[in-house]
Design a protein around this nucleic acid. Structure first.
Length: 418
DNA sequence: TAGTGTTTACGGCTCT
DNA sequence: AGAGCCGTAAACACTA
């Protein structure tokens, strides 16, 4: 995962590395400027400062901020990138068209320019935008978040791409590169299951959902790195099916592993041993409509944020037409962390933890927040003094070694209120 | 043809 | 040191 951060350097070839490379990215997980105390508190909590995680300052509501300091369109090295997707721009009054995915993110973690102050330690006169710095989330995390926040709890590949790009300007660059990685992640990781399209919704590609048993991947709600790689528990042969593959997943013919090991393999239609593409033709139940995802989501949704598009978003239809059987069991299969579930009974079992890098912080911000100028602007720079302080110290420690960035976050499990 | 999906391979990094 | 996770590249197959 570290790579998530370190890899940034790879982008050099494509765009001026001066933008972020070698510089501490400034992300703030604080999704809440107004109420997002969770983050603020977190950031200022003892132990946080030294943690170094701070590199991560996901600043807030994005949508909002971009306007104040955002380089705006034409950002050097970011041709064509306005910094914020229309849907994320709080400034634009008219309700943006609903994104392709389910619930539109109410807020974006896009680290707006924030943290300019942090750089002060280097006495750099200019203000650099971190808007396009690479998010600290792994692709698996991003995919998980995207799927989780969708109303139907399943998205097509393209919708996942869009979600990521909408939230993270960084990913508007070198799309071929990261999208390949996304596809790889989807195929390679057992935690993602492919749900064939139903005949009534023809299109390219299948839907991707989270394996019902993958709930523990990101314990504590920290999306930086999985605590443990999810593997299909049930293996035909029993045993742990090594992380090496996706036994349970429909793979290429002849591919070992299609022995149907994972639970999803046996009880899920989409896991039929058909090739990825052929699966569409054999998708049995996908056509069977399952109860609206709402049945499970509301209570299980990490963000549980009423989506402004809830009534109109096209994807919502999917919830009626594509809910995968597996998903129907999701609630039952959730593996809530006993501790967290206990402390956060109101949150989704999977992501109950209000970790700074939790999807909760990214997606649960009430929409009004991003519309609130005060909140918006407050979030731009280094909104939270405490956070900044923590960030600074963290940066100092981490500077030169982005790996430190993660330490406090996942390397050393934050014990946060648990 | 472009998009999607699967695999394999490799290297970097962290943790044990 | 080894295991495991992750990111990236690339080849290949299939489908809309």
């Amino acid at each position: 995962m570290l790579s998530a951060v370190k890899m940034e350097g790879h982008e050099h070839a494509d765009w001026s590395g001066s933008y972020y490379y070698g510089e501490p990215e400034c992300y703030s997980a604080s999704g809440t400027m107004t109420s997002g105390l969770s983050m603020n508190a977190y950031m200022s909590a003892p132990g946080m400062a030294g943690a170094g995680h701070v590199n991560a300052h996901y600043m807030n509501p994005v949508g909002v901020g971009a306007s104040s300091q955002s380089p705006g369109p034409g950002m050097p090295g970011m041709p064509g990138v306005s910094g914020l997707p229309p849907s994320m721009s709080s400034i634009s009054p008219p309700p943006p068209p609903p994104p392709p995915y389910g619930n539109a993110p109410v807020m974006s973690p896009v680290y707006g320019q924030a943290c300019a102050g942090i750089r002060s330690r280097e006495s750099k006169p200019y203000r650099r935008s971190y808007t396009h710095a690479k998010p600290p989330y792994s692709y698996i995390s991003l995919i998980t978040m995207a799927i989780q926040q969708s109303g139907s709890k399943m998205l097509t590949l393209n919708e996942i791409y869009q979600w990521i790009m909408d939230l993270f300007p960084f990913y508007r660059q070198n799309q071929q590169r990261w999208q390949n990685s996304i596809r790889h992640s989807l195929s390679f990781n057992d935690c993602f299951i492919k749900v064939p399209r139903s005949p009534d919704r023809p299109g390219k590609g299948s839907f991707w959902a989270l394996h019902p048993d993958s709930g523990n991947m990101f314990e504590n709600g920290c999306y930086l790195r999985r605590q443990k790689r999810f593997k299909c528990a049930k293996t035909a042969g029993g045993g742990d099916q090594e992380a090496a593959g996706k036994p349970g997943k429909p793979g290429k013919p002849g591919k070992p592993g299609s022995e149907g090991g994972c639970s999803s393999g046996s009880d899920s239609p989409h896991s039929s041993p058909s090739s990825s593409s052929s699966s569409s033709s054999s998708s049995p139940p996908s056509s069977d409509l399952k109860p609206p995802r709402g049945d499970l989501l509301p209570s299980s949704s990490p963000a549980r944020v009423p989506s402004p598009f809830a009534h109109t978003h096209p994807n919502l239809h999917l919830s009626h037409h594509h809910a995968h059987p597996l998903l129907l069991h999701e609630a039952a299969h959730l593996k809530p962390d006993p501790h967290h579930a206990h402390h956060y009974p109101h949150h989704h079992a999977h992501y109950s933890f209000n970790h700074p890098f939790s999807i909760n912080n990214l997606m649960s911000e009430p929409q009004h927040h991003r519309l609130d100028p005060v909140a918006q602007y407050g979030g731009y720079g280094c909104p939270v003094p405490g956070a900044l302080v923590a960030a600074k110290s963290g940066l100092d420690a981490a500077h030169g070694d982005s790996s430190n960035y993660y330490h406090g976050v996942y390397g050393r499990p934050l014990v946060n209120s648990t």
